[in-house]
Design a protein around this nucleic acid. Sequence first.
DNA 1: GTTACTGGTTACCTAAAGGTAAGTTGACAT
DNA 2: ATGTCAACTTACCTTTAGGTAACCAGTAAC
Lengths: 126, 126
Amino acid sequence: MINNIDIKELSCAEKLQAVNDSLYVIGGKWKLPVIIALSQGHTRFNELQRKTGISGKVLSNELKELELNGFVKRQVSTEDLKSSIAYQLSPYSQSLESVIFAMIGWGIQHRVHIKEGRNFETSYTA
Amino acid sequence: MINNIDIKELSCAEKLQAVNDSLYVIGGKWKLPVIIALSQGHTRFNELQRKTGISGKVLSNELKELELNGFVKRQVSTEDLKSSIAYQLSPYSQSLESVIFAMIGWGIQHRVHIKEGRNFETSYTA
DNA sequence: GTTACTGGTTACCTAAAGGTAAGTTGACAT
DNA sequence: ATGTCAACTTACCTTTAGGTAACCAGTAAC
């Protein structure tokens, strides 16, 4: 239930449009990893690079897109006369919590699933 | 909580590994859309192509990968002497429910959010 | 036997993603 | 003044994704 909408009641086309909208904004290799690293308090450019393994060029780009989409704010602090730059998550990025939880949770269970050896036998349609 | 693991207690590196695992398997433009279309009962090749807008070449590829990863089974039915092919979701694909729900839900709310005009002022760190 | 439909495959091409490595700018440290 | 670090940018290149269009095999209707 989101805004009085029951997802199960949506048409196929509506579901597809919704995931496409999501993928357009937060799809790709780096958007979620960068947001997660930021949410863990890694707010500096170099720190983000090291934590995620992203290259400088791509990180620079991702941060700009994340800023454009309102997830991140670039903050220049001029305390100490030395200006240092920090990237902060916006309140709107909190809306991604359930997506990020679901992705992390699934990743963890999938790793376990694979280690256990998988089972592909039966099938179903939802 | 997943298998007695509290996601909030995970280290940054563990979270990043988990999303990377997820993105590796279900990332990209078409994996989730194809799974959604399948879950809505669109099980034929041409039908999937029409519903999702994916090209034949790419659909063929995605279905193979989804089969390799245990989400989909290709079924040849020889009823009526005419053999027809249907793609079916496996039980394991059910594990993606929360991911798909989160993605659809977020896509819907994001569309609303944008229409309403966004608000980027304040910031926070989780 | 010709047409048409399903379920693909193949060859070809373009565009986007992403990496490397070098260079830049400004601030500070020695 | 020299060197160093942070935060980038730029040029260059490779890889991957993805589309188009043509083709092919099997079935089945006319």
